[in-house]
Design a binder for these strands. Structure first.
Ligand SMILES: [Mn+2]
Ligand SMILES: [Mn+2]
Ligand SMILES: [Mn+2]
Ligand SMILES: [Mn+2]
Lengths: 222, 222
DNA sequence: AACAATTTTTAGACTAATCTAAATTTTAAT
DNA sequence: ATTAAAATTTAGATTAGTCTAAAAATTGTT
């Protein structure tokens, strides 16, 4: 029943999970290749193996979906990744732009007990340092209402609950502007021309952000 | 200059280091194979590769020694292993018999920064949960005077500072007898026949231990 | 010094994971 | 409905790490 997955296999399942998450429909070979920075030929190869092992539903040329077994594995991997990120930020005082790479390695450590204890040690966090929900031991994600800042209008206020983009240069940009999870954002003005926004941050500083930045900020309306 | 090592390569270097540590002379192919639970043929293969990369001094049929580069890598790996063991015991409340396997995986996580911060988080521990010294960032081990309990005589008292054997069944046996690091051991009697010992533990309980157990207990004379 | 036992290396094969280039299938557009 | 473009799969090769069986070298013992 308990089937061992290699690091590579785990990464493929996670990639498929993430693609399915954002597009609803089945994941294509090319999309997976792009996500994993690998060649489509390698993906096809791996899809055959994962299908053989019943982690995915795969038919040639038709794309893939995760089986419930595959979905469970992917969710556990995400759980581990995000818990480790919390550990790195909360306990080791890394910043949110420094943790992803390290968590990419830590997520593959195999020990149920370790994760149980880590979770307890961190006080059962519900969200990671980027505001992403951490599935619980049963794989259940906390749902939260949130929307990209671009969905809000002039005069409205939101609290930053997450970021869509996780690239460290983006996160470092946010650091430089003192924009962090929990920051209060009041939209003062939206430029008609380029949709850039003038905002008031934490009832203090006024700054201008581009539409591209605003698209990547997830807020809860206040 | 900075050469990347795979998990397998790191494990070979650590094995060679440990063999050299206990026998002084160069490590033989068979000894490495035994340590890593692999075949001698695989070892020869890997020795060629590690020699090529200048981590070991290797001549066919002559056994191997680590170069200074190899020694440095092995020491860093041991440092990581032992720091993670401290983390698991001190922070996650694992017992000393549960941590080795997990640390075997954690030691391969690649991030200098992570280890620096972990070391600080743990308050720069000098010894791991089994009493083994943790090399500092420069690779320097703390030396301590210690001897196997079998080197001591009737009437002498020692404090347990380490164990030679790390198998979990041995550690669990010690747990069951309430023998732990720091325990005070007074030798009451040594049987001439089988060299088993009657000892007084922590000025409380009297127990009998076999010579095999005594050989694996490292004590500091009091 | 010869030979038997042991150790080590080589030969040849296998698996997982990857690649490039070529062939095939699907999809989209005329 | 053809045909061009894009996506996907296959073919064939490569690398790391492993294995078993056989050959070669070393070591130990008469
Ligand atoms: Mn991440
Ligand atoms: Mn994250
Ligand atoms: Mn250990
Ligand atoms: Mn240890």
């Amino acid at each position: 029943m308990i089937m061992h997955l290699s690091t590579a296999e785990e990464n493929y399942l996670k990639a498929i999970f993430k693609i399915s998450e954002r597009s609803e429909k089945s994941a294509s070979t090319n999309a997976i290749a792009k996500q994993l920075n690998t060649s489509p030929a390698s993906v096809t190869d791996m899809l055959k193996r994962l299908s053989e092992k019943k982690f995915i539903n795969y038919e040639k040329y038709k794309g893939v979906t995760l089986t419930s077994e595959g979905s469970k594995s992917a969710t556990q991997l995400i759980r581990k990744h995000r818990l480790w990120e919390v550990f790195l930020v909360k306990k080791l005082r890394f910043t949110w732009d420094q943790v992803h790479e390290i968590a990419e390695q830590l997520e593959h450590i195999q020990s149920k007990e370790l994760i149980m204890r880590l979770d307890a040690f961190l006080d059962y966090p519900k969200f990671d340092p980027h505001g992403d929900p951490i599935p619980n031991a049963d794989g259940k994600f906390t749902i939260r209402n949130q929307s990209p800042l671009t969905d809000m209008f002039k005069g409205q206020t939101g609290s930053l609950v997450g970021v869509k983009e996780h690239q460290s240069d983006f996160l470092q940009y946010l650091n430089s502007q003192n924009i962090r999870l929990g920051s209060e954002i009041l939209i003062l003005e939206i430029m008609a021309y380029d949709k850039s926004m003038r905002i008031k941050l934490d009832q203090k500083r006024e700054i201008v952000i581009t539409n591209m930045v605003a698209q990547n900020l997830l807020v809860k309306k206040l």
